[in-house]
Amino acid sequence: MSSREWSESTNNFFNGWLPITTGLCNFVTKYEATLLEVYERESAEDFALEHKYRQVGPHQALLKDPGKVYTRTTFHKLQDQFDQVVRFVAIERYVEGNVRQLTVKSHSGHTESFEIEIDSEKLTGNCGCKLFEYVGLSCCHLLKVFSKYDILKIPKAFIMTRWTIGANKFSRSYDESQLEGDNL
């Protein structure tokens, strides 16, 4: 982060609640109070994420597990994608072993059409819209294919860890012996 970016970020953080003429002692007091406020707001959000599950309707079986795994924001984005599934029809074009190639196109008069390749055994695949590759969220086209083949759970390959509830928690993924001597 450049010094200009840091300055802009800092100004945005303090803007609105602290006049420019504030003395250093008053600044430190207000800064600590604001950090405590931010910490409490984030803790409340973390609590809500871990203890309040998203409600899904009986016709949304595919969203049951993501409702327990994803953060609320990500779950709502996935729910928006799921709501668009009804606009599309999935047409199987080619099957070779477990790999299926499909075209998912709009049946509401729009000309949008996307090519999907999915391995029905490994439950991996990709879509031509590349939403999963760019955003990390299953697109409505993939969700349409899942529902076509009665896949009632979003496969693990299509759930990005960074959008899950525990992703912001620090986890130690190293062995302490890696920190000794020459390994530093």
Results as ranks from 00 to 15, higher is better:
3 S>F: 10
7 S>W: 06
8 E>D: 14
11 N>E: 15
16 G>A: 13
17 W>M: 06
19 P>V: 07
20 I>L: 13
21 T>W: 05
23 G>P: 00
32 E>Y: 03
33 A>P: 00
36 L>T: 15
37 E>S: 10
37 E>D: 13
40 E>M: 15
42 E>S: 10
44 A>I: 07
45 E>V: 13
46 D>G: 02
47 F>Y: 14
52 K>F: 01
55 Q>H: 03
57 G>L: 08
58 P>C: 02
63 L>V: 10
63 L>G: 01
66 P>N: 09
67 G>S: 02
69 V>W: 03
73 T>Q: 11
76 H>R: 14
81 Q>W: 01
81 Q>L: 02
84 Q>L: 15
84 Q>G: 00
86 V>M: 07
86 V>N: 04
87 R>D: 15
90 A>L: 04
90 A>E: 05
92 E>S: 06
92 E>R: 06
95 V>M: 09
96 E>H: 11
97 G>C: 05
98 N>E: 12
98 N>D: 13
100 R>L: 01
101 Q>R: 08
104 V>S: 08
109 G>T: 00
115 E>I: 14
115 E>S: 14
116 I>W: 01
117 E>K: 13
121 E>N: 11
126 N>Q: 14
126 N>L: 08
138 S>L: 05
142 L>C: 11
143 L>T: 06
143 L>P: 00
145 V>K: 06
149 Y>M: 10
149 Y>D: 03
153 K>T: 07
154 I>F: 03
155 P>K: 09
156 K>R: 12
157 A>F: 15
159 I>Q: 08
160 M>R: 14
160 M>A: 14
161 T>R: 06
161 T>I: 05
170 F>M: 01
170 F>I: 12
174 Y>V: 02
178 Q>F: 03
178 Q>D: 15
